[in-house]
């Protein structure tokens, strides 16, 4: 046990854009409660600069939260060549939907593809399971 565990992990604010992923969609067709669905859904893709700010490594878990909810997901470095620091990508799933705010301005359409979260290293905490989301 090192001294580092007593230090608070850095926390950064990011905007999230959700997207579709055919591999995750395939896993969803087979089982919404399966390991493959969790592995392909409970992920946040981050820019390398944001990964550095969080002092985490690719593949470690992070806490993603806002006033709507909180989940622990796997942080992965985004494979986009261009920098998108400040913007993170999450596949459309119950994990991302637990963070989408309920504000709609009365339109009936939540902001699925544009919401803010804070992200912080989870220090080895396990990914939130699908049955723990609700």
């Amino acid at each position: 046990m090192g001294f580092g565990q007593f230090l608070a992990s850095p926390e950064i604010k990011l905007k999230v854009v959700t997207y579709r992923d055919v591999f995750q969609n395939t896993a969803q067709e087979t089982s919404r409660f399966g390991e493959e669905y969790e592995r392909s859904s409970a992920v946040i893709k981050l820019d390398l600069k944001d990964i550095a700010k969080l002092t985490i490594k690719d593949g470690e878990t992070v806490i993603v939260k806002n006033s709507s909810g909180k989940v622990v997901v796997t942080a992965m470095k985004s494979d986009y060549e261009e920098s998108h620091a400040g913007i993170a990508y999450m596949v459309n799933s119950p994990w991302s939907n637990s963070l989408v705010p309920d504000e709609t301005g009365g339109t009936g359409v939540p902001k699925f593809k544009d919401f803010e979260v804070t992200v912080q290293g989870a220090k080895g905490e396990k990914v939130t399971g699908i049955s723990e989301i609700f």
Partner: peptide, 16 residues
């Protein structure tokens, strides 16, 4: 359909 998965949880929670 699975609104508890596809809607924001803050909205769909009421279904339960």
């Amino acid at each position: 359909s699975d609104p508890l998965s596809s809607l924001p949880l803050s909205v769909s929670r009421y279904l339960a």
